[in-house]
Amino acid sequence: MRRSLTAVLGGLAVLALAACGEPGSAGGGGGSTSDPAATDSDVQACAPIAGDQLVVLEDDQQLQTVDNVIPAINAEAAEPAMIAALDAVSASLDTDQLIELNQAVDIERNTSTQAAAEFYETAGIEITDTSGSGPVVVGVANFSESITLGELYALALTDAGYDPEVRTIGNRETYLPALQSGELTVVPEYVGTLTEFLNKSVNGPDATAENPMASADLDATVENLRSLGEEAGLVFGEPSDAADQNAYAVTQAFAEEHGVSTLSELAETCGDLVLGGPVECPDRPFCQPGLEETYGLDFAEFVSLDAGGPLTKQALTAGDIALGMVFSSDAVLATD
């Protein structure tokens, strides 16, 4: 695969406007709440600034929960050769590489099968345990990133001796019961999202609010996920460094005008901001309330758009909003 360069500008990831697939993002509330660094006298009103390039501001106080990619496996079907093959894929991936895979499919219009095969060869993924045998079914959700990850899993499982089939099932509510029943063998999942999904399933519908088990701490969240998995009939491979989680973007022109690269710097510099995101943002701890409480950000207005989709990105580039919610593995983060 032709690898595109992800430009890093002092903690900023540069984005080129494009549509993307549905992410696995967990939400948040995982960061610690701190006293706002800025006061009203420290900040100026910062109007939106239009621009074709978008940049993500670093979540430097870890408001968002982790959402690293992790293989979820039916416990009865799990074998050492299978887990080792899936772990080899995890070890090969980071967020920049996941962005490039998404770019290959969502922007360059390769198929997920083509993108996965090219990455698998280029990354030099080596499978050392080839003792596997028999059919396995790799389940994937109905968005391109999940399908591409499933194709990567299938390549590794083939080299491990298995006969894999990649099957698109739908959303988590559909594919997770199929994974638990053994209809599916393995599914690419997201650490934080699945942890809280299982938390509700195992501990009741109020568990996420009363006793959240996903946080900004990857090790702690994975430990909780493995514990919940024991009750759900699931085991897990190792998490990858690739993450697909909520992020917040401004235009590059806005960032350069105000000299900001992190959410803390934005709070210290700007007030009366216009925020855009999904309709539930004003009520969700990872969105407007979290930005206000964790960072002390000051919003003059919220514009209801979508969850990291084209409406939010178009509103940013048009200068209708100053800050918008995107996703950290979105294909638009990759630039040539």
Rank of each mutant, 00 (worst) to 15 (best):
E58F: 00
L101M: 11
A141C: 02
T122R: 14
G132T: 03
F143T: 03
L275R: 07
A81P: 10
V89D: 01
G233I: 15
I147S: 05
S304K: 12
R3K: 15
T185M: 03
E292D: 10
L228P: 04
G150P: 02
I147W: 00
Q288M: 15
G319P: 03
Q180W: 01
A91R: 04
V166F: 07
L152G: 08
E292C: 12
A255R: 04
D96K: 09
D219A: 12
S146C: 02
E165S: 14
A45R: 15
A209L: 13
V166Q: 12
S112A: 13
E280A: 13
A300Y: 08
G290Y: 07
A267P: 13
G29P: 05
E76H: 05
G51Q: 13
G30P: 03
P36V: 10
T168D: 04
F299E: 09
L266H: 00
D244Q: 00
A77N: 03
G29M: 11
E230N: 14
E210C: 02
E256Q: 12
P188W: 06
T269D: 02
A78E: 12
V235A: 02
V303E: 05
A85Y: 07
D330V: 03
E292H: 09
A78H: 05
D336M: 10
G27E: 01
V326R: 06
D67M: 01
C46D: 04
E238H: 01
L234V: 14
C20F: 00
T6Y: 02
S34M: 12
V202S: 03
N211H: 09
K313F: 07
G237W: 12
A77G: 02
K200D: 14
G271W: 08
T122K: 08
L98H: 04
V303R: 14
G11W: 07
L12E: 08
A81K: 04
S181N: 07
T95A: 03
V140M: 00
G233K: 14
S240V: 10
G132V: 03
L184D: 04
L323C: 08
P278W: 01
L333Q: 14
Y162K: 13
A47M: 15
P205V: 13
G308E: 07
P285K: 14
T158E: 06
L291A: 11
R109H: 11
G237M: 11
